[in-house]
């Protein structure tokens, strides 16, 4: 294959898709910060930010502007390269997940059928694992490079928390994989879309619960927001950060949230499946659009759920967090796996 024979059109198409998704994610993340404040306010009987623009809708831009305009501080004794690399790594790891998420079914433009998924690789879930396991580096490097004891402690906490919950996360997913028999997110979604099949949440309520809890921990969301525990660790691993580097950390967290929600929607809630609607009866583009909206509705619901939980449940103590992860979640996930396996065998009549 020579360089010229490369499918440049496909390349361009994917590039555009990547750009769209990345910028969309950033935009959504931007508005998620706003939503966080709004949801917090509503849950606390307050109106929330409402000054910048109608209903305060320009607030995120104001926030962003503030972050960008702030003075860039790099501590003297910090490791400069890694100090800058840290937020970048966090951001990259957060954004990499979106590559395998099927955002919707195909659309047709100018006679080209375009898959609304960046890469339908057949080890999609493993890829997600890989990316999630890489997400630790941003935190660790940032925390270490700050040359600050509190940052380091928070980073180590964050890393060990992420690693601990990654195990249970993976184990809970295995049950889903056993059901679907595929590692490709697309085929998992499409299997749930089959007429007669229900969403995986019906088959895997326990698995979903475990996955959800682990996701909370992976995204460092309350009640697992130990790494950035303000009142214990002075704001956590990004304590020395300011300006847009801090913004990157915060953003990456929200992007992580979005991606986790998307994965969760795909794995357990049928992805872009619209319940009680036969998509094949619609035109391709319409089905894709509606599906995209459905997926987004699910994502938004999950994000709301994250926030709702954040403003309800107090933070765990560190030992409680570890106990929960290792002594409850992992055994529970193993049990779920066993149960699923037994049920599959039973159903298969073995």
């Amino acid at each position: 294959m020579s360089l010229l024979a490369f499918d440049w059109l496909l390349f361009a198409e994917k590039l555009i898709l990547i750009a769209i998704i990345v910028f969309a994610s950033l935009g959504i993340a931007l508005y998620t910060t706003f939503a966080e404040r709004k949801v917090a306010a509503v849950l606390q009987d307050r109106p929330g930010p409402n000054r910048a623009g109608p209903l305060g809708l320009f607030q995120p831009f104001a926030d962003g502007l503030k972050l960008i305009m702030k003075e860039e501080i790099i501590p003297n004794s910090s490791n400069k390269i890694l100090f800058i690399l840290g937020p970048g790594l966090a951001m990259t790891a957060a954004l990499m997940t979106c590559a395998v998420i099927p955002w919707s079914s195909r659309v047709e433009f100018f006679g080209r059928s375009i898959e609304l998924q960046i890469a339908d690789i057949n080890i999609g879930i493993l890829y997600i694992f890989g990316v999630v396991s890489l997400g630790v580096y941003g935190i660790m490097i940032g925390g270490w490079a700050s040359n600050n004891k509190f940052s380091l402690m928070a980073a180590l906490r964050g890393a060990s928390q992420a690693i601990s919950y990654e195990l249970a996360l993976g184990l809970s997913l295995i049950a889903v994989l056993m059901l679907s028999g595929s590692l490709s997110l697309k085929s998992i979604v499409e299997e749930q879309m089959q007429p007669g099949n229900y969403w995986n949440i019906v088959y895997q309520p326990l698995g979903f619960l475990i996955y959800f809890i682990c996701t909370l921990a992976e995204c460092n969301r309350t009640p697992f927001d130990l790494p950035e525990a303000e009142n214990e660790l002075n704001f956590g691993y990004h304590q020395e950060y300011s300006s847009m580097k801090l913004g990157f950390y915060l953003f990456s967290e929200y992007i992580n949230m979005i991606m986790s929600s998307a994965v969760m929607a795909c794995l357990f809630f049928g992805g872009y499946d619209i319940p009680f609607l036969d998509e094949s009866s619609l035109s391709t583009n319409l089905a894709a659009g509606l599906g995209f909206l459905a997926l987004f509705a699910k994502i938004i619901f999950f994000i709301f759920l994250f926030m709702w939980i954040r403003w309800t449940i107090p933070r765990f103590r560190y030992d409680q967090l570890m106990n929960l992860g290792w002594k409850n979640m992992i055994p529970l996930a193993l049990f779920n796996m066993l149960l699923t396996g037994a049920l599959i065998l039973w159903k298969a009549g073995v």
Binding site: V132, S133, V136, Y137, M140, W144, A155, A159, I163, E166
Partner: peptide, 12 residues
């Protein structure tokens, strides 16, 4: 994801 994190942990 695992081994090098462990190394980082130890070094840090």
């Amino acid at each position: 994801g695992a081994i090098m994190v462990l190394f980082l942990f130890v070094i840090m």
